[in-house]
């Protein structure tokens, strides 16, 4: 049984100009211990899909799916209170802006402790030790002193480490990372990615990596979903995708990577639009 299984997910937003379809029939399957990458340009519905799973979309959004199951339990029919228990404990998420994701009014130790208090039955003292342990495990130097630091006293990379500590505090079965490295500089990106993949390997949790960075995909993912304009273009494992992309959009995306560029101009996805239209016509009878 898959850890997370989603069939035919559609999300529509009510806008002044009528309903806008942000996601149109996408499928995701994540097994335990697997890293799934969702790639696509801005507006392709990567984040919306995950927010829909978490039930975090605003009122104006209508979510529908044929199946949306976590460990075989349907998330759609689950009462809100029960859903809150699963989300946060078994499914955790980290965001793009690490500094904004931490409450500026409280110390990081307090915020870690809060999560443990809500989802575990550890005693006060045990929680304190666990907080230190978690900070150590995500590689915060001198955690004994850092517990009482406020988010503004730490760098972006360290804040992201704290976010990862918070997300993994309850040993979730599935971790969703929504562009976890976009706001960080390149050297820190590498460290955070290593940390995430190490933790994923050690704990055997499922990991969904949302990104627009093909380098990140190549380095971390087992399987890749390529999305474009709310539709799923292609699902394949990493090697196949990079060596033998079947969809023209994926080809376009790959050839737009600077390291793949030939000639003096970097190709863009738009260059392949014509090619894709031809492809669509071919599919339609």
């Amino acid at each position: 049984m898959a850890l997370l299984e989603i069939r035919n997910l559609r999300v529509e937003f009510d806008t002044a100009a009528g309903p806008f379809r942000a996601l149109d029939g996408v499928d995701y399957t994540v097994e335990g211990g697997e890293v799934l990458a969702i790639v696509g340009e801005s507006g392709s519905g990567k984040s919306v899909a995950m927010l829909a799973v978490m039930g975090l979309l605003p009122e104006s959004a209508t979510v529908s799916a044929d199946l949306m199951a976590f460990e075989g339990i349907d998330l759609r029919t689950m009462p809100a209170a029960e859903r809150r228990k699963v989300i946060g404990k078994d499914i955790a998420m980290i965001f793009q802006e690490p500094i904004a994701s931490l409450n500026p009014c409280f110390t990081i130790g307090f915020q870690l402790d809060e999560v443990l208090k809500a989802h575990t039955s550890l005693s006060r003292k045990a929680r304190k030790d666990r907080v230190i342990e978690l900070l150590e495990s995500v590689g915060i130097p001198d955690p004994l002193r850092r517990v009482s630091a406020f988010p503004h006293q730490m760098s972006g990379g360290q804040c992201q480490r704290v976010m990862i500590a918070i997300a993994t505090a309850c040993e979730p079965k599935l971790l969703i990372a929504d562009e976890p490295t976009t706001a960080l500089d390149v050297t820190i990106q590498k460290q955070i990615l290593d940390l995430l993949t190490d933790m994923q390997r050690d704990t055997g949790m499922g990991l969904i990596m949302i990104t627009h960075d093909m380098g990140v995909v190549a380095e971390t993912a087992d399987r890749v979903v390529v999305q474009y304009k709310g539709k799923q273009m292609e699902t394949a494992d990493v090697l196949t995708l990079f060596e033998n992309p079947s969809h023209p959009y994926t080809k376009a995306l790959l050839s737009a990577l600077p390291e793949n560029a030939t000639g003096d101009r970097l190709p863009t996805v738009a260059d392949y639009e014509a090619m894709m239209q031809a492809d669509v016509r071919e599919v339609q009878p």
């Binding site: 228990k85 989300i87 946060g88 965001f95």
Partner: peptide, 14 residues
């Protein structure tokens, strides 16, 4: 609408 509020909601806050 800040991220930390979403993060708190995600962690199960009512």
């Amino acid at each position: 609408t800040r991220d930390y509020v979403v993060a708190a909601r995600l962690a199960g806050a009512g």
